[in-house]
């Protein structure tokens, strides 16, 4: 009886002190922000039409601001990579298998951005977070442009127009996303929602 009790207490599935690199709270935040980012982008795009320059600008800005908040909240190396993994699995379901072929390149972009944040002073510095997110957005857009070329390679003019819209989206990230993200983080820190541990 005592033996079986000891065995059940030491079984790995019930061990109370089991530690993971990714705690449940961080994983929950990553999942929720991925969902929020996708849903808000979809809503804004549906409101203003797919290639409307204004909504494109706003959509990318909001997605970047949410990403800044996510990285500032979780503060772990690999947050962007995990965000990409979850986002690409969801994209596989929403947009079909074509997008999932971009996973390796997006993963490399996210890891490079994570490395940049770590090199610039870590996740506690808002400047480093902004630099990392800006780099991730830039690399992500370059990859998207490559995919656009593959998809519409018969008509280079169409790829060029898509390129201009991608540049416009990146401007939205820089002009709206990063400043708004920094301001959101400041307000959330002030409110105690992003904790200074």
């Amino acid at each position: 009886m005592t033996k079986s009790l000891q065995k059940s207490q030491s079984s790995p599935s019930l061990h109370p002190t089991r530690r993971f690199y990714w705690d449940t709270e961080s994983l929950g935040v990553v999942g929720l922000f991925t969902a929020l980012s996708k849903v808000v982008s979809l809503m804004v795009a549906l409101l203003g039409g797919g290639m409307n320059p204004f909504t494109l600008f706003l959509k990318n800005g909001i997605a970047t601001a949410l990403l800044v908040v996510l990285v500032a909240r979780v503060r772990k190396f690999g947050t962007l990579a995990l965000y990409v993994l979850v986002g690409q699995i969801v994209s596989f379901l929403i947009a079909g298998g074509g997008m999932s072929m971009l996973l390796p390149s997006f993963l490399v972009a996210a890891l490079a951005s994570d490395a940049l944040i770590a090199a610039c002073g870590g996740y506690r510095r808002i400047g480093a977070v902004l630099a990392g997110v800006a780099l991730y957005d830039l690399l992500g857009r370059a990859i998207s442009l490559g995919y656009s070329f593959l998809h519409a390679r018969e008509n280079m003019a169409m790829v060029m127009v898509a390129g201009v819209f991608i540049v416009l989206g990146y401007l939205g990230c820089l002009v709206i996303g990063l400043p708004c993200g920094a301001k959101f983080v400041k307000e959330l820190r002030h409110a105690g929602i992003i904790r200074e541990v």
Partner: peptide, 8 residues
């Protein structure tokens, strides 16, 4: 991966 997708 499982937990974020579940939350999603």
């Amino acid at each position: 991966l499982f937990l974020p997708l579940l939350v999603f």
